[in-house]
């Protein structure tokens, strides 16, 4: 493996990792406020992909778009992905989890509901949109943009990394600097005291889901531009992003970002060294190793109680 190879692989890893990071935020936020492993988040992610495809198919991108048109298409796709992701997450919380919270259901019931919701949603998508994969319409000419240390970076790769970065900064800002953010952190620390202090827990939980859904939806769209959109597309990225959230310290927003990037880069190097069949072996070996020595993840838990 030469030096230029290392850069090649690093670029691939960072692109993949930033997608994992954006998805992982959704798991970690919901875990923070509810101690719920929301396995249906992978389907929120999937619906974002469909949102992007549907919006762009409706608009029908012109054959040779100008730079400005391309930019418009990408923004449209991002917004549509975020919208559908946010909607599905909102509906999911209202339909599946809110009734359980009202009844004070045990933790296990939440978990089973999450798995059930995941099955329901992806089969529903298969029924609604068909079980064949759908391609993302061409929004721009995906050419080489520039080189860093001899490694070429394509338009898609740049879009993914830049969008992910913006999303991550945005969510970091929301959680740490806004009123909603202090609500989220307050509920994460102690929901009872938070509600005594006048925090509307239901509203905070609902908005947390929407925030995670927006992120997941955008990630779904970005993932669709890189691969294609399919009703089963949520599973593997979802599980990996969940692992990323755990790796970084579940409940910790910055930890999810770090965990996502780490897993992406480790995957890319594993594939380079041992082939694609070993992709998850390498990534999850790192997860296990880290958890053996730091059971709370790399950054540990900064918001929320211990699990």
């Amino acid at each position: 493996m030469s030096v230029s190879d290392i850069w090649d692989v690093l670029v691939l890893g960072v692109v993949l990792g930033s997608l994992y990071a954006v998805i992982a935020i959704g798991y970690t936020l919901v875990y923070g406020v509810l101690q719920l492993l929301n396995f249906a988040h992978s389907e929120v992610f999937m619906s974002g992909g469909y949102g992007g495809v549907i919006a762009l198919t409706l608009v029908e991108p012109v054959a040779d778009p100008s730079g400005l048109q391309s930019f418009g298409y990408v923004i449209l796709g991002i917004c549509a992905g975020a919208l559908l992701g946010g909607l599905v997450a909102f509906g999911l919380e209202k339909a599946a989890y809110l009734p359980l919270r009202r009844r004070n259901a045990p933790r296990l019931v939440f978990l089973i509901t999450a798995i059930g919701a995941s099955f329901f949603l992806y089969n529903l998508a298969g029924k609604l949109f068909g079980r064949y994969p759908m391609p993302m319409p061409t929004m721009y000419e995906n050419r080489k943009l520039f080189e860093i240390f001899g490694t070429s970076v394509s338009v898609t790769q740049l879009i993914i990394v830049v969008t992910a970065l913006v999303m991550l900064l945005l969510v970091d800002f929301v959680v740490n600097r806004t009123k909603l953010g202090s609500g989220i952190r307050a509920v994460a620390q102690d929901p009872e005291v938070a509600s005594l202090m006048g925090v509307n827990i239901d509203r905070v939980v609902s908005r947390t889901f929407v925030l995670g859904g927006l992120m997941g939806g955008v990630a779904g769209f970005l993932f669709g531009t890189n691969l294609q959109v399919e009703y089963t597309m949520g599973f593997l990225p979802g599980i990996t992003a969940f692992a990323a959230a755990v790796l970084g310290g579940i409940g910790n927003v910055r930890g999810a970002m770090l965990g996502g990037l780490t897993l992406g880069v480790v995957e890319a190097f594993t594939v380079e060294l041992w082939g694609d069949a070993w992709r998850y072996v390498g990534a999850f070996a790192v997860l296990i190793l880290v958890l053996m020595f730091r059971p709370t993840g790399i950054l540990g838990e900064r918001v929320g109680r211990t699990a």
Partner: peptide, 20 residues
């Protein structure tokens, strides 16, 4: 020879290998 499982999330690595 190379193997790329059909459910891989990213074909960039495999493509990179073929070209190099």
């Amino acid at each position: 020879t190379a193997s790329v499982p059909a459910d891989t999330v990213d074909y960039s690595s495999a493509a990179h290998d073929v070209v190099s």
